[in-house]
Simulated scan of single mutants.
Amino acid sequence: METLLEEWDGESVSLHRDRETGAWMFICVHSTALGPAAGGTRMKHYERVADALADGMRLSEAMSLKFASVGFPHGGGKAVIALPSPAIPEGESRRRLLHEYGRFIDSLGGLYSCAPDMNTSAADMDVIADMTSYVFCKTEAAGGSGDTAPDTAVGVLHGIRASCRHAFGSDDLSRRSILVQGAGGVGGRLIELLTEADATVIATDIDPARLAILRDKGIQVVEPDTALTTPCDVLAPCATGGVINADSIPTLQCRVIAGGANNQLATPADADRLHERGIDYAPDFVINAGGILHGGGLEEQHWTRQVLDAKLQGIGDALSDIFQRAEREGISTDTAARRIAVARIKSKAAETQALRARI
């Protein structure tokens, strides 16, 4: 873990071990230049504790880029609860673990605020809120904004339209075939939105029950192991990360990649590989920013629904700017998006430093 910490460009890592279960908790804060750190809480088992730390670091950087890309006043953070076994705790054991985690967050005094992520939910945020106020996306019954997935899907839809406008000269989705990989919270809602837009939808999921439900609704489905090689105009990854990699890129049969999953690229070099193949890639930390706009916008900024809808539509505008810059500078869209986001973070950091110097 020492090497990970030495090589990371983030600000801090806080760690805590739950003595009763042996679970490790990492809160990784990549940047506070734009504001206090915020991000999701991932609960899962890792083969090594170092793998959990690496996951938190990587995801917290993506959160920094995500906030900066849509101009939201928070820095990037991420928390990982590394379970000692693959079994996800339920009932009272889960409640006790989340209370322990809530006390850990509270001990940091507002450095980081949590939200749902893999294997955590709005209901879990309610439990964590028993111990700390630094929580986003509680259930609506508890005064929160509720599930972020539907608005994440809306943002992805706007991103797909912008991507198609750049790649095909039109954002008319009735002329496009779109393969959605993963039919969970975000992917499932995206399938509904695409169907409403008269797109030709193809779907896949590792859960056979979900595929059966989609098939019964008249949606064309493909098996997970053939999804990436299925011909389509747009591939929308909405499941786990790392699916776009050196092995899969040569076999892709799409013109656009635009989906809701985090960390879709296995390595930064994969963006260049896509660029070389002429595949337009909508950077994931931009296109899936609808969740933070939903949670932070409604709960912290107190936006109206009308304002939130306009912000979600702005995801498409942000992607159009990225495509244009990438084309103009002859670089990948991932590189263009990172340059835009990092410039905003550095500008704010310099502004803050200058202000402190005058005090």
Rank of each mutant, 00 (worst) to 15 (best):
A167N: 11
A343Q: 12
A68W: 03
Y281L: 11
R17Y: 04
I213F: 08
L59N: 01
R277Y: 03
S85G: 06
A350G: 07
W303A: 02
C254D: 08
G242Q: 03
H74P: 00
A350F: 09
I206Y: 05
T251G: 02
L98W: 01
T204M: 02
R277T: 06
I315H: 03
L108W: 12
L355Y: 15
A326H: 03
T229F: 11
R273Q: 14
I287T: 11
D198K: 14
V13A: 04
K348N: 03
A269E: 15
K138M: 12
D247A: 14
Y101P: 02
P84A: 04
L193K: 12
H294N: 12
R339F: 00
M57Y: 01
V234E: 08
L293M: 14
G40E: 01
G297P: 10
G143P: 08
A162L: 10
A87Y: 04
E299C: 10
Y46N: 00
I191R: 10
I128E: 04
Q301C: 11
E90K: 12
T335V: 13
V154E: 15
M57E: 08
T139K: 10
G242D: 04
A337Y: 10
A50T: 15
Q220R: 14
S133H: 13
C28M: 11
S332C: 13
P150W: 13
L193W: 11
N119W: 02
A162W: 08
M43C: 06
T335I: 13
T21L: 07
A23I: 04
A341K: 02
D198P: 00
E92D: 12
H294Y: 07
H158E: 13
H158L: 07
C164T: 09
A82T: 00
A350Y: 06
E11L: 15
L194G: 11
L190I: 04
A33Y: 02
G169S: 13
I128K: 04
E20C: 07
E20W: 13
A37G: 14
R17C: 06
V13P: 06
D55H: 09
L312R: 03
A167R: 15
A23H: 05
V127Q: 07
D205V: 09
G109I: 10
